[in-house]
Each structure stands twice: as structure tokens, then as C-alpha cells.
Design a protein around this nucleic acid. Structure first.
Lengths: 361, 361
DNA sequence: CACCCGAATGTTTTCGACAACATTGGGTGG
DNA sequence: CCACCCAATGTTGTCGAAAACATTCGGGTG
């Protein structure tokens, strides 16, 4: 049957409140190197030299400065520093859909990596509903002088925007390529999506369907290519490629919208959310998971282990991806070698949503 | 039975790659008002006045400036501006768990609201694993001169840190209060959690259990209080308050860990993730949802409608909350009236996970 | 003993925007 | 006919840090 899962628009409304203010102690001015210099009885430049770790300072002078420094609780004014030096310690990050697990984690990782390197991350969250969002965001970026710019969601528009925009600073587009490195030697390894497909092959599956993400996302295309080449390599048959938009709703609709189901025994969704939707739609068609059909996702969102049935999926380390992106950008900014970043390989997590093909079929 | 949902640690590993670099056109210097002034044949101050919308400028002068301005593609240097004016256009936002739907959406809303007001949001993502995270983040904040500081995750530590830190700028702790305004008149209204409880009461439920979040989160405490007072108001009985950490896993364990189930016919989780875990644990105990037991969540995450069964939940408008928080802060910053922010009330969304108590019971 | 050198420290300038103050040039009232 | 006023525009100083340049002082050398 096809009972729709209740349109998300329903009943009763209610009133809620938000917020509460705090008015704690407000620190007064803020010490400058001049204040410190005066307190220490030296010139501001001596203080500046001390701060930069200059060696040639007499021990007694050094001590006076040191003392004045923490007496006044001096904190460098980064704004002044940027103005003079022409470079800030801020990284701009353009991203979509922060609230999704993947992007969210990537931002977390990026934020942490940036902080560790002494930078802060300025998040520019793109509003998907606003077609001019990217344009506007780039305008903002060019003003707030940043040390570099990062694109954390690599859709085609984003990539294109980055390629055609003349930034005054290094820019980097972080893209993932799921287990299908361009290096042909690794193409058939039991890595990433190939591992998923191999897993299904072992279980006896021959006919599979892929539920892909939006074709404008490079991650989506990568996953699709990876899937198809793995299927081919295993001598399996891809019955269909359905398309969603990463959401559970789209996964549901991709299948609920079909006049009749393809004769596949396994479905591989490009992310867990779509897998969730797909599972519900399949169940509503009267199929049991995994007895009648196996479903596999990608990402291993925290809820994946607690679905019914728990979802077999490919775990991605998003945080590491975020960190990696920042390190790459920092390398460009600081003209250094891109520190060897280790993004752990995707890990196949087998749960109950995938099972052997039953002979009875 | 109690087949555990397969520990999230499993099989096969794989290698994946990340990233790809772009080296697009790099814009050269950047025009200053002096450059513009020279090009227009006027003084830089005239340019400045033009930019600030000063009226008393001769039309011909105005025109020259205007032309030079866009010929050079002038963009104000916000750094210099902040240095001089002592105030930046950046808002620092401290937050936890961005990858969760709630916090993530809040950040999106805050980011958008900030941008609309001409500010950018500097995200400081707190690492939950690092106990000194808040401290470190506050240190960062004091340096990067910000126009204001926002706490978007109101745990006790965060609130405490904000209350005891002497910021040089306005600070605001955004807290939600779910349908339990302090105003006693509205206490029993059919709002927020009271609406959830009323819904259950209508279905004939009398004995309920709450799965709360961590007690250090104010949102969690609010929800718990709201739940209990609503239950009392309906003459129902709260069988137990279980505690989780917002995760699906914790929801699962809260119930799977019980020696025997409380004799309740309905479970209300403080968020949807815990509801997901709870549903699985209940099913594994052999209970059917909603025939044997009803489960309700809070938040209405996008997947909620596609779970099995689709989850009855209370929809929160996180984006609006984020916007509201920014507006409150901006009011403090700009010493203006806190623009009346409308955070839509939580909306009860009834799906299939809640149903009438069966007489047979 | 004059001179040179370099270590240690001080003074000035610069970054870009902007504000306070200064100057120019018409027009007008006395 | 000139002092005065005001509109329009120019000049100088400020913000905090830091680089460029300058000065001081002690010691060694010819």
C-alpha cells in the first residue's frame, strides 16, 4: 500500500518563548603596547620586540616588560595587526546545510583545525532558497579581509563561483571523492563504495539500485561513479539510478513515486537520510528489510545504528575532512607544504539492513 | 528479545581521498579611498563623505567620485574601519554540536540574520571532549575584537562562563524555554509540551515516561519542567524520568538498560534522536508502536516523518531562534530597542507513533 | 684618544578609514 | 566695497601594531 507518511504539516499550535539576557561585568578599556611600555618604562617598540620573541633584549628589560605585560593583562589587538600587516587570521568558510550531519561535522572539524592554527572561522551559511546567495556571500568575503577562503560544500555553482572569482587571497574548494581515486590502480580496491558493493555481492545480490544525490554536487557524482564502476567490476547489474536531494523525503519519494519497483534486491543510497526515506517507502510496498530487500546508506549518521532495522552504511570521517580542508588552505596561505593530512578511509559498518538474498525469492 | 543494534564498530576499511585545489585569477592590490580620491581628482575625505551619504557635495564632484569609485571597484577595508571606530562588524558565536539539527539550524538562522544586518558570524565550535574548551574559546574571543558575543548552546558551564567573564562587548546567552513561560497565566495553555501531553491525554494515556536530556542544559531542564507540570495539570502520572545525552544511542540505552519497563503507555523524549533510540529499544522488548506504546519526540528533525513509524513530535523553529538571538544581541550592541522578534510557537505534528490506548491492554 | 661597530633601545612612519579642524570661494548685509 | 557667513572641500591627527629608520652607549682598535 502507499499510505503516505503523514504530511509533515499537522495539528495543534502553541506559543513558546526564547531567550534571557545577561549583563555581567564589562571590562573597561584594553591595554595597548603603549600602556605596557609606559608601565615598564620602555618604548612601545621594545614591547613589540618582546612580543615577537626578538632575542636581543637585555634580561632586566625583558623582565620589566614581562611583568608590565601581565599586570595589565595585555591582549594584542588583532585588528590593528591585520591592518598593518595586511593579513588577518580569519578564514572564511562558505557552506550549505550546516544542519546536516555531514556538513555540520565538517564545519566542526574545520573550526577546530583553524583554531589550533590560531585562526577563526567565519561561517557564511548559504541560503539554499536564495539564488543570489553565493554572489552576495562573495561580496561579503571580499570586504572582510580574510586570510583565505574555503568552500565546504562543493556544488557546481560553488565551484564555478570560486573559479571565476578573483579573490585577493588563497581560496580552496574542498571536495570529497569517495573511494574512487583517479588513480586507476585503486579503482577496484575494496575501498569505500566498492566495499559496499562487494559486501552486497558476497550476500548474493546481483541486481541493485542507486539512489543518488543532486547531480550538481560533486560528492553525489563521485558516489554515483564509484557505485557504477564497482557494480560493473563485480559483474552485477545496476537496475536504476534514482535521484534525490539528500533528504529523507526525497529518498521516500524516489521510491514511492515509482509505478512499479525495479527488480532489484538491494538499494544503495548516497546518504543515510535518503536511505531512511527509502526504507519506509519499501516497507510500505510490503517488502521486508533485509529479508526481501537490502538497503545501505552512506555517512553513518549517529542515528543509523538505531533505525529499524539498524542501517548498514559507510562511515565517513567528516571532521577529518574539515580539518584537512583547513590544512590545505593554510598551506596556501602560509606558502608551506600542505601538511600530510590523513583522512581516514570510509569504513563499512555492517548492520541489519543488509542481508543475504533468500533463495526462495 | 534484546539483540543489540550491532555495535557501531564493524568491518572493512577503505581508502578515500579528499580535495582538489583551485588556482584562479588572483586580484592584485585593492583600491583605497586615496586611490579613488586621486582618480577622481578630489581629496580622500570627499570620497569618505560620499561613501557615508553626506548631502553637501556638489553634483559634479559627486559624479566624479561615483565614477572613480566603480572604476576601481572600491571596497571599504573593514579592518581599518574597525580599528578607527573601535567596533567591528563581527559577532562571535559559541556553540556545541553544530552537526545536530537543532544547533545547526540555529547557526544557520543566526548567520543569516547577522549577514542581513551587515555582520558576519565567527563560529567558535566548542569541543565537547575538551574540558578547557570554553576557557580557550573565551580567550580567543577577547582578542578578535568582536561587536558582540553570543552563546548559542546554553549549558550551565556556558552560562556560568558568560556570567563570570568580563567581556569588553555585549554578550548574550540564548536560551529557549519550551512552552513554559514564567508567566503563570500561560502555564496550562495548550502550548509546546503541554500540547504534547494534552494530545496523549486525549488518546487515553495516563501513565507516561519522559526521556530527558542532560541536566546541565537549560533546554533540557525546561522541557522536563514543562513536561512534569503538564502531566500534573492533566491529572496524569509520570512513571519515570530517564536521562540521555540527546543522542539516539542514549535514548536506546535509557530503555534497554532498564531491568523492567515502567508500566507506561507513552514515552516523551526531549528530542527526536532519543525518541529514535527509544523506539528501537521498545520494539526490541516486543512492544508495538503505537499499538502497545506511544512515542513522541521534540524538534521534528527532517527524518522524523520517515521513521517507522513516522514520529509524532513538536516542531521547533530553530532558524527563528537563531535569528532572534542575533537580533537581541544587535539591540545590545546598537543600544536600540530589541526589535520584536517572533519565534513561532512550537507546533505539534501528529504522526503515527502516537495512538490511542487500546482497551484490551 | 679619536673612531668605528654593533647591541639595545627610541622615534617616526605606515596601514585605511574617518573625524576634528582648517581653508577656500561665493554670495550677502551693512 | 568689504567683512562675514556658509557651503564645499582640503589637511592633519587618530586608532594599535609593526616596520623602517634613528639614536645612544660601551668596547675594541689603530
Amino acid at each position: 500500500m502507499s499510505t503516505s507518511p503523514v504530511s509533515p504539516d499537522a495539528e495543534t499550535a502553541t506559543a513558546g518563548a526564547v531567550d534571557s539576557t545577561t549583563a555581567p561585568p564589562r571590562a573597561p578599556k584594553a591595554a595597548t603596547i603603549y600602556d605596557v611600555a609606559q608601565a615598564a618604562g620602555v618604548s612601545h617598540q621594545t614591547v613589540s620586540r618582546f612580543l615577537k620573541g626578538f632575542e636581543g633584549i637585555r634580561p632586566e628589560t625583558r623582565e620589566k616588560v614581562e611583568q608590565a605585560l601581565d599586570e595589565l593583562g595585555y591582549r594584542p589587538n588583532l585588528t590593528a595587526r591585520s591592518l598593518k600587516s595586511g593579513r588577518s587570521h580569519r578564514i572564511g568558510a562558505l557552506t550549505h546545510e550546516i544542519s546536516q550531519v555531514g556538513p555540520g561535522r565538517i564545519v566542526e572539524g574545520a573550526s577546530a583545525a583553524a583554531r589550533e592554527a590560531g585562526y577563526v572561522l567565519d561561517i557564511i551559511a548559504l541560503d539554499a532558497r536564495n539564488p543570489r546567495a553565493i554572489e552576495e556571500s562573495l561580496a561579503i568575503i571580499t570586504q572582510h579581509d580574510l586570510a583565505g577562503v574555503l568552500a565546504l560544500a562543493s556544488t557546481d555553482e560553488m565551484t564555478h563561483a570560486f573559479e571565476t572569482t578573483a579573490f585577493r587571497v588563497p581560496a580552496y574548494v574542498a571536495a570529497e571523492s569517495d573511494g574512487v581515486p583517479d588513480d586507476p590502480r585503486t579503482k577496484l580496491s575494496s575501498v569505500g563504495l566498492p566495499a559496499v558493493v562487494a559486501h552486497l555481492a558476497e550476500l548474493g545480490h546481483r541486481r541493485v539500485v542507486h539512489i543518488a544525490g543532486p547531480h550538481t554536487w560533486s560528492a553525489s557524482r563521485n558516489r554515483m561513479r564509484a557505485f557504477e564502476s564497482a557494480v560493473e567490476a563485480q559483474g552485477m547489474h545496476s537496475e536504476a539510478i534514482l535521484h534525490g536531494d539528500w533528504s529523507a523525503r526525497s529518498g521516500y519519494e524516489a521510491i514511492a513515486g515509482l509505478a512499479e519497483l525495479p527488480g532489484a534486491t538491494a538499494y544503495v543510497a548516497a546518504n543515510d537520510q535518503m536511505a531512511i526515506g527509502a526504507m519506509l517507502a519499501l516497507k510500505e510496498r510490503g517488502l521486508r528489510i533485509p529479508e526481501d530487500v537490502s538497503v545501505v546508506g552512506i555517512d553513518d549518521i549517529p542515528e543509523a545504528a538505531y533505525l529499524d532495522p539498524p542501517l548498514t552504511t559507510l562511515r565517513n570521517d567528516f571532521e577529518a575532512q574539515g580539518r584537512a580542508a583547513v590544512h590545505q588552505l593554510l598551506a596556501l596561505i602560509e606558502q608551506s607544504e600542505p601538511r600530510p593530512v590523513t583522512v581516514p578511509p570510509p569504513l563499512l559498518v555492517v548492520r541489519r539492513s543488509s542481508g543475504p538474498v533468500l533463495q526462495a525469492g
